[in-house]
Design a protein around this nucleic acid. Structure first.
Lengths: 193, 193
DNA sequence: CTCTTTCTTGAATATACGTTCAAGATACGC
DNA sequence: GCGTATCTTGAACGTATATTCAAGAAAGAG
């Protein structure tokens, strides 16, 4: 008997960043061996192939993002300000330099969804889980009386998610802090008023 | 003397669709020769290389989209309903089947922007031209008294564009007509009210 | 300590890709 | 109708790629 030597989460985060930097197709196995520190044989042993590594990386990404989101809603204040903090943090993320700013899920969706049903299904499931988590926050805000119960929380969740998709794409065209913040503020206002 | 035999626009539209289907990296020269009907030598003679073909296709895409947009605003009715028609047509486009629904500009931006400054610059310029065209329509609506002059037309243009980015991404995750239309309606209402 | 199982290593393999180029075909000028 | 300039053709080239595999290293069992 003998256990694997590498740290799976560490490896997957490295692969995540490689895929976010160059996209799936342009990221070569050589890039991946350099990024992860693993040799080709080890990658193929642990993840079958390049595609399997992407699937595992997508899964890790979703886990990381889920715990990150939960962090914003673990406190005791009003849900709506937690939501605003969350949105503002996304604006901040879009403005980081030297780090891939795009969301791995939407990036992979745009690149490969139409060519691989399984990957498409996985990404869609992950994004829709995220959307549901946000929808639940709107429902909670309604239950707390912070938001009119007249509104459809599912619709608010969808519109909020759509806005974040748009914000991230917009940030790729002109990453100006003041403008992105203004767009985020408007989005939040339209959703919560 | 002898003139080229192929129709440049026809070839570029074929290349456009090929790139929209598979993305830049995954579209092979073999795909492109099949799609365009041109032999490798002809492509390299006319466009230098695969990258040059993409640049030319991006240019053609922008031209096609510009004339398409102008068509929505050539009539005499209120600008705001023309804008609504334009937005609705995008919803319709997202729901087409068998045809690539994504915007070539944003798709290419997501795939290659971080790796090629010239392509990034071209895409950014094209998208910002589109944004400006829409901003001009908001200004026109204000001049016509259809829209409060209190509002910042540049901001409205940006928010509208952001919404369309988001709508297109959302459509890739769940292309349900009623939901997309509801999102578009909300976007239009938030922008115009 | 030794054996055996499992993991690691990285060179080797086959394939697919972007690109080139020399030969052949075609249209225009004279 | 001929000559020439230009375009077209598609096979050939070198490279880069994803993947495999057999040899070597390491860890646990007895």
């Amino acid at each position: 008997m003998r256990n694997a030597e590498f740290d799976r989460e560490h490896v997957l985060r490295a692969a995540m960043h490689a895929f976010m930097n160059k996209g799936y197709a342009k990221t070569s196995m050589q890039d991946l061996t350099k990024a992860t520190g693993l040799h080709p044989g080890s990658i193929y042993c642990a993840f079958d192939n390049k595609r399997g590594l992407l699937l595992a990386a997508l899964d890790q990404y979703q886990q990381d993002r889920t715990t990150e989101l939960q962090g914003f809603f673990s406190g005791k204040g009003p849900v709506l300000s937690q939501l605003k903090n969350y949105l503002d943090s996304i604006v901040g993320e879009c403005l980081l330099t030297g780090v891939p700013q795009a969301c791995l899920l939407t990036k992979a969706l745009s690149e490969i969804a139409s060519q691989d049903e399984e990957i498409q299904a996985m990404i869609t499931a992950n994004l829709s889980g995220w959307q549901q988590a946000l929808t639940d926050k709107f429902s909670l805000a309604q239950a707390n009386g912070e938001l009119s119960s007249q509104r459809d929380s599912a619709h608010l969740g969808r519109f909020f998610v759509m806005g974040i998709y748009g914000l991230r794409t917009f940030a790729q065209t002109s990453p100006e802090p003041a403008i992105l913040q203004q767009l985020a503020d408007q989005l939040f206002q339209d959703v919560c008023a």
